[in-house]
Nucleic acid binder design. Sequence first.
DNA 1: GATGAATGAGTGTTCATTCAT
DNA 2: TATGAATGAACACTCATTCAT
Lengths: 214, 214, 214, 214
Amino acid sequence: MTVLQSKASIRAALAENTRANIIDVATREFSDKGFAGARIDEIAEKTNSSKRMIYYYFGGKEGLYQAVLEQSYAGIREREQAQNFDAMSAEEAMRALVVHTFDYHMTHPEFVRLVMNENILHGAHIEGVSGIKSRNRSVVNALKRMLDKGVEEGVFREGVDPLDLHMTMSALCFFNVSNRYTLRAIFGVDTSVPKARTKRREQVVACVLSYVRR
Amino acid sequence: MTVLQSKASIRAALAENTRANIIDVATREFSDKGFAGARIDEIAEKTNSSKRMIYYYFGGKEGLYQAVLEQSYAGIREREQAQNFDAMSAEEAMRALVVHTFDYHMTHPEFVRLVMNENILHGAHIEGVSGIKSRNRSVVNALKRMLDKGVEEGVFREGVDPLDLHMTMSALCFFNVSNRYTLRAIFGVDTSVPKARTKRREQVVACVLSYVRR
Amino acid sequence: MTVLQSKASIRAALAENTRANIIDVATREFSDKGFAGARIDEIAEKTNSSKRMIYYYFGGKEGLYQAVLEQSYAGIREREQAQNFDAMSAEEAMRALVVHTFDYHMTHPEFVRLVMNENILHGAHIEGVSGIKSRNRSVVNALKRMLDKGVEEGVFREGVDPLDLHMTMSALCFFNVSNRYTLRAIFGVDTSVPKARTKRREQVVACVLSYVRR
Amino acid sequence: MTVLQSKASIRAALAENTRANIIDVATREFSDKGFAGARIDEIAEKTNSSKRMIYYYFGGKEGLYQAVLEQSYAGIREREQAQNFDAMSAEEAMRALVVHTFDYHMTHPEFVRLVMNENILHGAHIEGVSGIKSRNRSVVNALKRMLDKGVEEGVFREGVDPLDLHMTMSALCFFNVSNRYTLRAIFGVDTSVPKARTKRREQVVACVLSYVRR
DNA sequence: GATGAATGAGTGTTCATTCAT
DNA sequence: TATGAATGAACACTCATTCAT
């Protein structure tokens, strides 16, 4: 807060800025071309700083990729907690969650593509992403609460496994984005177009709800 | 059939063998590491022939990848036509199709991963795969006939778009395989284990059927 | 002449045909791209026969090049002997020789380029061209006779070395063709255009004559 | 000039050194073996730096060749401007120019061979050499001034085209060097030997002068 | 913290040549 | 004689990474 604080903190802020800028660029590149296809030189060039800084901050290509993955996974959490599912009815909550999941994937194709790539790499780096398990467990827990509430309310059937439901939801939301190019080439569909997107979202919601309904 | 025929035809057969062997190895490599991650040297080494032959038959890495993609897509068609859906009831047929789709993805992870990779490449080569559109159109047509029959039989509701249903089915079957590694790391689930696979298959069937049922 | 002769002779004729065709194509390729730039595969493809035949007849790339060089040098001799310089006056003969030399170079750029290439190769194969020395000695001898005659006639000065004159003539005729592309790029001149060619020819004739005249 | 300046400038000077060294080596190699015959590996090996640096500075084989060509053409200009032709009589100046041109070619065979090679490549890169047209136009202009002066002085005849004269001069000076190896093989002449060189130079001077004299 | 120069191992590709039939 | 398949050495080029300042 004081003027004296600045010397060190300004430098720190600039450093953080550099770091953030590198991750930003790298996210685009890794997402666009995959880990093996992305080029350190190209990333550095699109950065405000230099190639040396990538090694200074992240140690290497793999470290940078790890940082990108981490930040990308961190992005989901923030949005998810904004919603207050407890205030809604079970069905409302379920619908809201599906819609949110669907939209998040649609608006974050770079995240989807990073996850694809991570699977191409046999999940070599996903273990290193901190807090990933607990974070997702909380999503499953939220789902469990919804399902329980729905059963209580008499609208959902019993015996639906929350983790399985989560996978179903994820699959339906992930696929449209991950397989965008082959879907377009083979069927001519393009769920990135607003109208098609809305239509598809409703189908996904309907599919999930019909699965859990009594 | 004659002895004289053999001279040329034996050579041709051997050549076809070489070609097939290269595609075979390349399928594994491209599937395992993606296009950018796969190495021509490594493919050649695992082959019964040499690096030079890859260029002789496929022109280059891209040509080889294209050939791999083509053969991989061609593999689906064969299995699909084996089933006689018309002889079944609508629900039986639908279930059979879902089961078949699910199993095909599960037993052909290399195909799933090639499709993932092709999407990483923004679908750059999928257009070149011959007959891909017509082939998939026939799947959608089969779905349409099932849906119509189901409506007639009074078991399915009206208004289900066959292409959308196909996407739903595909998503549910694709995701388990494509995201195997992140799913395992995050949730500890592994649908490649027989027991988990069977369980997941039933859920997918249930999800699809609940969606189309009246 | 007889019918029985045919079996062997027809085969020989076909073989000669194949050989000639290969040399023909190779002449174009070596002339166009130089020895190092020419490709055996490309030559074979443009041939009526196959790559194997090149090795069968010429042993390899170098042997083929040698054969091309040989035939190309052989081409000069034929035309040169057609003229009867002895029947002309010294100046007429000298003019006729210059004109012939100029025209031969102009109409045989592939020969000029092969000679260029041979010099790029430090003359590695020129020694192998049979009869090349005796052939050129005869040209110099012809020049000597012209010069002597001109001195006798009182039109040429004494002391002109025939070999040096030959080099002067060659230089003036060779350069327009050999340096065609740089001349065009730098000065915009193109001596392959008929009008410019005629003009240049007269200058070369004038230059040579002014040099030898009394 | 200051000490502080050095940090960056020393590095820049070293870099320039690397660049220059590469061009130097490459000039010898391209000149010796032509573009297609030269090997990047061999050039790199003879360099003080590495193969990677060739790509760092020149982008590739073609870029390196272009740089070599450019520097080689740039070398001519410097020497040419050293002479003060205006202070001489027309004939003295013409003689001086021919001698200079002759000597330059003789002492720079690598330039001659690069030009040969560029013609083998159909002049593909000559257009990219900066200032080449203006530079050569100035030579032709100098020639024109000499010719005009000679006409004024009454020693040169009228009607001599300066560009044509330039070509004549170039041809006579280029050929001895460009065709050194075939000339040696066929006629046993070797104009690289001092005595033969001097003799040939006088002939070229005489040839040019006899052509322009009244 | 920051920069341009430098590096070596590797990466896709092409070459002239030979083999099997 | 003739052909398509096959080969290994070499070729141009690129990669992630590190050094010197």
